[in-house]
Amino acid sequence: MAKVYVDNVRDLVVKAGEIREKLALGTRRIGNVHIGGPMSATDVTVAIYYKYMGFDPDNLDDPNRDIFILSKGHNGILLFTIFCDMGMYDWDLLLDTYNTIGHPFGAHPNHKRVKGIEVSTGSLGHGLSWCCGLAHANRGRNIKSRIWTLLGDGEMEEGSNWEAILYAASKKLDNIVAVVDFNHASAAFETNQNPRWGEQGGPEGMAECFRAFGWNATVIDGTSMTEIDKALGALPEVTLNGKPNAIICSTTKGQGVPFMMERPCAWHIGGFDDAKLEEALKDIKAYTAEKLAEV
């Protein structure tokens, strides 16, 4: 299995389109799956896995590897789809066995069952603390690779995150990168209204909160691969003695599929019939073409 590396922005957009299509096809085959969140997090996750973390399926135990923690564990299907795309697993196996007894791919990722998954997640508000522990472990051995975590904006309401945010800045754990998929919706609320982040609200308000706790924080258009590529490329060199980094990606739940984006909470979990699948695939193709035109 060769290391999969996608360098230029156009190819990353194409790759994100392919992953979205697979997510849509998977949703039809599986029946009912967390789909709104994976769709909104696809672009930044693709950029991290295919370019910035140097993910190498053949060297998953390399002590110098970057580590990715899926704090919003309900996006497991997104990572599984990427792993299949990289040749680590058979995609049909994923779709035929998803969330069934005795098979690797559960509704939330389990590190004992799926190679490439670093820790088992699912309950929200744990990823940042995992990062703190892993960051200490690496710093203790002078390893300067990055510890990434992907969070949702709804998840950021959990108090445990803020213990870790306070802590990481205090201990200067600059090997941590927190990526927030600010998709503006949890399962029940459109999060522009609930809660209000900082003075400004929304992604900018959340960035204020991170900065107030001593982090570097950048807000980007999480639907623009150009902006994602620029932000990830601009991450400061790890010194093991600096500010941790947050990148807040403004997106919409169900990104790329208008009928999902219009009802983001309803599409936290959902399934497609044939008609919905056809519509979603058509939408994703058009969306990807539009995004390519912007590059």
Binding site: S129, W130, C132, G133, G140, S160
Partner: peptide
Amino acid sequence: DRVLDVGIQEMNMVTIAAGLAKQGF
């Protein structure tokens, strides 16, 4: 990085420990 007093944040403390343990500590 091996002897820590995290302050009054027990939830964070437990997961920090899990992170260290994952890496062989």
